[in-house]
């Protein structure tokens, strides 16, 4: 600790000047951004970012409306609505942030007496929630499905191997969009599935095929001596798999698995075609009511980036934790 070690490398070959090249990078990014801005100006696009926030969160007004005709009376500190015809029938006007009536007002049934406002998630935030929910359910299912298929793929049983191969090839050889239509319109109709369930199943089945390949390659990357050691101790194939091979394989497949889940989050945007109001569908709806496609789609892209970024971060932490455990 006492001696400060120089951070730059000393060697024959000239090293690039890091500061210079980073600076150049920032300059180019800036130039491209300005280019986009100018391009938007030439098509006379009017930026209206101020319209967007209300689609994230807005203050919903919860109105209290008069249940009968009557008159407002001040009784002590409190306002009361009394029925004109039946003086015993009244309601006390309380727990409202804004009271829009005063003493002596004549009120007809259905009039607003005042309202409370509260912050409510707008369509875009609701879309984010749906996207996360979809990805979470589909992800868990995909891990289960993929692990089973991956194990089947290397199983000594030929029938299991055949099934796994058929599944993986079928799914990887057809577009996800087509699979979503098949699950929703065909299987969904036969089994009477709601659109959210159909979306989750389509995504899980699709991702599961890729997870299967990842799991298979992970298991095969574990030295066969590990299996031999387990078996030579009298452990069964299943015990050795569960207690020795899979824990080691899991650690190794964590990075590709994470990549697959990032793909899953992005692929989930396709389920908007069966009218699931995920982030992408919400974006389309907001565009049609604001006529601000640039702002909306840029925001939507950014939100996807945030979700996948958080996932990458969590996975990196997980990887570091497992690396320490060795």
């Amino acid at each position: 600790m006492s001696k400060r070690i120089e951070t730059h490398v000393k060697q024959m070959e000239r090293q690039p000047n890091a500061l210079l090249w980073h600076g150049l990078f920032v300059l180019i990014v800036l130039a491209v951004s300005i280019g986009f801005y100018k391009a938007a100006q030439t098509i006379e696009y009017s930026w209206r970012w101020e319209r967007l926030p209300q689609y994230f969160v807005y203050e919903a007004e919860d109105h209290l409306s008069a249940p009968f005709d009557g008159e407002i009376v001040l009784e002590g500190e409190r306002l009361k609505l009394e029925n004109e015809l039946d003086r015993d029938q009244f309601i006390v006007i309380e727990n409202l942030e804004i009271v829009s009536v005063s003493d002596g007002d004549l009120i007809f049934e259905g009039d607003s007496l005042g309202y409370s406002s509260q912050w409510t998630a707008g369509p875009i935030l609701k879309g984010v929630a749906v996207t996360i929910e979809l990805s979470l359910y589909a992800g868990v299912l995909a891990i289960i499905l993929g692990t089973l298929a991956g194990l089947a793929k290397i199983s000594p049983n030929p029938m299991l191997r055949d099934f796994a191969t058929l599944y993986v090839e079928l799914i990887r050889g057809t577009p996800l969009l087509v699979q979503i239509f098949i699950v929703y319109f065909f299987i969904g109709t036969v089994l009477d599935l709601d659109r959210f369930t159909a979306g989750v199943i389509a995504l899980a089945v699709f991702t599961g095929a890729y997870v299967a390949e990842i799991v298979r390659s992970g298991i095969e990357s574990i030295h066969k001596g590990q299996m031999e050691a387990g078996r030579s101790l009298g452990m069964t194939y299943g015990q050795t798999m569960r207690d020795i091979i899979l824990p080691q394989a899991f650690k190794r497949v964590l990075p590709p698995l994470a990549g697959q889940f990032i793909n899953l989050i992005k692929d989930s945007s396709l389920v908007s075609v069966i009218s699931i109001t995920d982030l992408t569908k919400a974006g389309r709806e907001v565009v049609s009511s604001t006529f601000s496609p640039f702002e909306v789609w840029l925001s939507v892209a950014l939100l996807y980036l945030v979700i996948t970024g958080v996932l990458s971060f969590v996975v990196r932490r997980l990887e570091r934790k497992y690396a320490n455990a060795r």
Binding site: E228, A229, S232, L233
Partner: peptide, 20 residues
């Protein structure tokens, strides 16, 4: 075969310890 292997210990050239 597992019953039999319980009674036969084996030591490998590459150790094959469980790394995790």
């Amino acid at each position: 075969v597992n019953k039999l292997r319980e009674e036969i210990g084996m030591v490998f050239q590459s150790f094959n310890l469980f790394a995790h």
